[in-house]
């Protein structure tokens, strides 16, 4: 059962999720007693995937594939899977991968399991563990189809170096113009700023911060940590912060290594969306705030005193560890 890994690039470079699925895919292939092939699209240095255990790369270079197009990418991944004889296809949990996943599953008549949190529980039959009920539970799910698609949760496996020599082979698929019937007109993306999807650290503010004018310290804290900024739902509903920062069950999911919640009570819907973060820190004036039950570290205190102090201490820490 050979494995195909779909890797995502941005501006010619692999996204972190690409290195994670490459690491994961090569390990899954090893467990299956097989090998992993990666599909790389418009990347400057596809052989880099060899650092993560990928011995074979199918390299696609095609301007028509920039920006992302879900139909065309699904076709390409399906063709690459056929070329590699892959029975297991591995995707990340990025917005683009999730967009493509259903289309690909339909095309390949494949069972797709998203939000997978680790290596397969068993390989024959293939059983994977995934989150369900918005992080309030786990399921062990058996994939019943000939071709199987695994969607790996962000940060579930990590980027693991395992150097091999990657053989890079040019690959192209015949992409019919009908695949582009849904086409990008405009991409509107923040540049030079960590995003909630990619960041290792997310700093999040809630209604306890009283108003948008108080977000300076949140941004500064995020800056010091190289973190993305996020907020609770009422904060975006009130227009204090953009909707794109809303995290939780009905907002964006957070699966970073570190999540710092400031002035957020920890309502069940908020926690459902952030519980996948590895380490959670809460700063809240109310010792009874439910977030303290979900957090790893907490400070009971006034954010307006604690956060500036935290920024100072982090700056000192950085100066010492530079």
């Amino acid at each position: 059962m050979s494995v195909l890994v779909y890797t995502e690039s941005e501006n010619g470079k692999f996204r972190k999720n690409a290195l994670e699925v490459a690491s994961y895919g090569s390990e899954v292939a090893r467990l299956l007693g097989s090998s992993a092939t990666a599909l790389s699209i418009n990347n400057e240095n596809p052989s880099q995937l060899g650092d993560y255990g990928i011995a074979s790369v199918l390299e696609v270079t095609d301007e028509a594939l920039d920006p992302f197009n879900a139909n065309a990418y699904a076709q390409l991944v399906a063709d690459a899977a056929a070329q590699a004889g892959a029975k297991v296809v591995i995707l990340s949990s990025s917005a683009d991968a999730k967009f493509m996943a259903g289309l690909l599953a339909g095309k390949l008549k494949a069972g797709y399991v998203p939000n997978v949190v680790g290596l397969p529980e068993s390989t024959s039959p293939l059983v994977v563990r995934r989150t369900a009920f918005s992080n309030k539970g786990f399921a062990n799910t058996k994939i019943l189809t000939d071709i199987k698609i695994i969607g790996l949760s962000k940060n579930a496996f990590g980027v693991v170096e395992n150097k091999v020599e990657a053989k890079v082979e040019a690959f192209s698929a015949s992409l019919d113009s009908s695949l582009f019937s849904t086409a990008s007109v405009e991409v509107d993306k923040v540049v030079g700023k960590a995003t909630i999807a990619d960041a290792d650290i997310v700093v999040s503010g809630g209604r306890g911060l009283k108003g948008p004018e108080n977000w300076g310290m949140i941004e500064e804290l995020a800056d010091v940590l190289g973190a993305a900024t996020a907020c609770s739902k009422p904060v975006s509903d009130l227009g204090w912060r953009p909707h794109s920062e809303h995290v939780g069950q009905t907002g964006k999911p957070v699966a970073s290594n570190l999540y710092i919640a400031i002035g957020i009570s920890g309502a069940i819907q908020h926690l459902a969306g952030v519980n996948a973060a590895k380490t959670k820190v809460v700063i809240n004036i109310d010792p009874e705030a439910p977030f303290f039950k979900a957090a790893d570290y907490g400070i009971v205190g006034d954010a307006f005193e604690v956060v500036p102090e935290l920024i100072e201490k982090l700056k000192e820490f950085k100066a010492q560890n530079a």
């Binding site: 369900a132 992080n135 309030k136 799910t141 189809t145 907490g298 400070i299 006034d302 005193e305 201490k313």
Partner: peptide, 28 residues
């Protein structure tokens, strides 16, 4: 195309480690 064999609730969380508001450096 798939079948959920078994469900599980997340392992109960260990107690939070509280850091005093005057000892922020300890959190770092």
């Amino acid at each position: 195309a798939s079948e959920d064999l078994r469900f599980e609730k997340p392992a109960p969380k260990g107690a939070v480690t509280l850091v005093d508001a005057t000892q922020v450096g300890e959190l770092v």
